[in-house]
């Protein structure tokens, strides 16, 4: 098993003040990836695998820190350098990897953006979604310039997460996890439908779609206290596949594996689990999460198999880099 490398981010993010709410990773110039961390203290970035972190809001010259609750980069980040960061009342976007920022105000009352997701075909369609704490979903179809609330059929505007179909350009499907369950839009976020997720198992903190979602319709929902749920029919019905003893499932990530199945990574405050068979068996990688702060978010670059690197953000303001070991099912 490869030894994990821990790299504290305290150089850029104050461990005393900050909580790392979201991470995003994108390809940078010269083939080096760039990792972004959204925290109470603002947005930070690293180009050296987490060794050093730079505050990215410096150009805004703010009198006090502007908390960032969400961050997202498009698949074509290497070419366009676009970064979106969610804040209280708006979305900040940068076209130069965080060197300079443009502020897009969201309609009043000021919503708190808690998650961002982009169309996999962002370079063509420019579609990006912002999930908010009390105001539902906002959608932009012009690369984040103008935002419109589209909450038709969304019975619950208290959102925690948003996930977009890998085949969004064709199926226009996305999901949000909310206080009362999971909701789906099949028309690019213009309207929402309640799904058969059991209300008693909500809230839903994290969502992940199968890399082959368009063909298999599989997605997973991580809850606060009821465990992990899976749906094989685009969210119409759900089954519990990991009980609530695991704790609040703060983040999920998926990747296709060579066996033709889906590798699923599950993160709680103190546990990191990996399944190589779509959630049927699990490998405990929690020993890779050493540290005081609870794990809250993760991002991965280049799959979830052996040797892949992931970053885990924690409540103490540190980011831990983990190199995933080879599989060994429990």
């Amino acid at each position: 098993m490869s030894e994990p490398a821990e790299i504290s981010a305290t150089a850029g993010i104050s461990a005393a003040e900050g909580v790392i709410y979201a991470l995003a990773i994108g390809a940078g110039p010269a083939g080096r990836s760039v990792c972004y961390a959204a925290s109470d203290a603002g947005l930070f970035g690293t180009r050296d695998g987490g060794v050093t972190w730079q505050p990215l809001y410096a150009s805004l010259d703010l009198p006090e820190p502007l908390p960032a609750m969400a961050v997202a980069v498009p698949p074509d980040h290497a070419a366009d350098g676009i970064v979106f960061a969610g804040a209280n009342g708006g979305v900040l976007r940068s076209f130069d990897r965080g060197a300079t920022w443009h502020v897009a105000q969201l309609p009043s009352p000021p919503p708190l953006v808690v998650a961002l997701a982009m169309s996999p075909a962002f370079s063509d369609d420019g579609v990006v979604f912002a999930a908010t704490e009390q105001d539902g979903v906002f959608r932009s179809a012009d690369r984040g310039g103008r935002w419109v609330a589209w909450n038709f059929g969304l019975l619950d505007l208290n959102l925690f997460c948003v996930a977009v179909s890998p085949a969004f350009a064709r199926d226009e499907t996305l999901f949000v996890g909310a206080e009362s369950g999971v909701y789906r839009s099949a028309n690019g976020g213009r309207a929402w439908r309640e799904l058969g997720f059991p209300a008693a198992a909500a809230p839903v903190l994290s969502l992940a779609l199968s890399p082959r979602f368009a063909a298999d319709g599989i997605l997973w929902a991580g809850t606060e206290s009821s465990g992990l749920f899976v749906s094989n029919n685009s969210g119409e019905s759900w089954q519990c596949c990991l009980d609530g003893e695991i704790g609040a499932i703060n983040a999920l990530a998926t990747a296709a594996n060579l066996a033709g199945s889906t590798t699923l990574l599950l993160l709680t405050a103190d546990a990191l689990l990996r399944s190589q068979d779509g959630g049927m068996t699990w490998q405990d990688l929690s020993n890779l999460l050493e540290g005081d702060g609870g794990a809250l978010c993760l991002t991965a670059a280049g799959g979830l198999g052996a040797g892949a690197t992931i970053f885990v953000g924690r409540t103490d303001g540190t980011v831990r880099r983990v190199i995933l070991p080879a599989s060994a099912a429990l």
């Binding site: 019975l155 619950d156 208290n158 909310a178 009362s180 369950g181 309640e194 209300a199 008693a200």
Partner: peptide, 14 residues
């Protein structure tokens, strides 16, 4: 817009 009722109760009512 954005009533603060319990969304679970709303789902059950619907």
């Amino acid at each position: 817009v954005g009533g603060r009722g319990d969304p679970r109760a709303l789902r059950a009512h619907l």
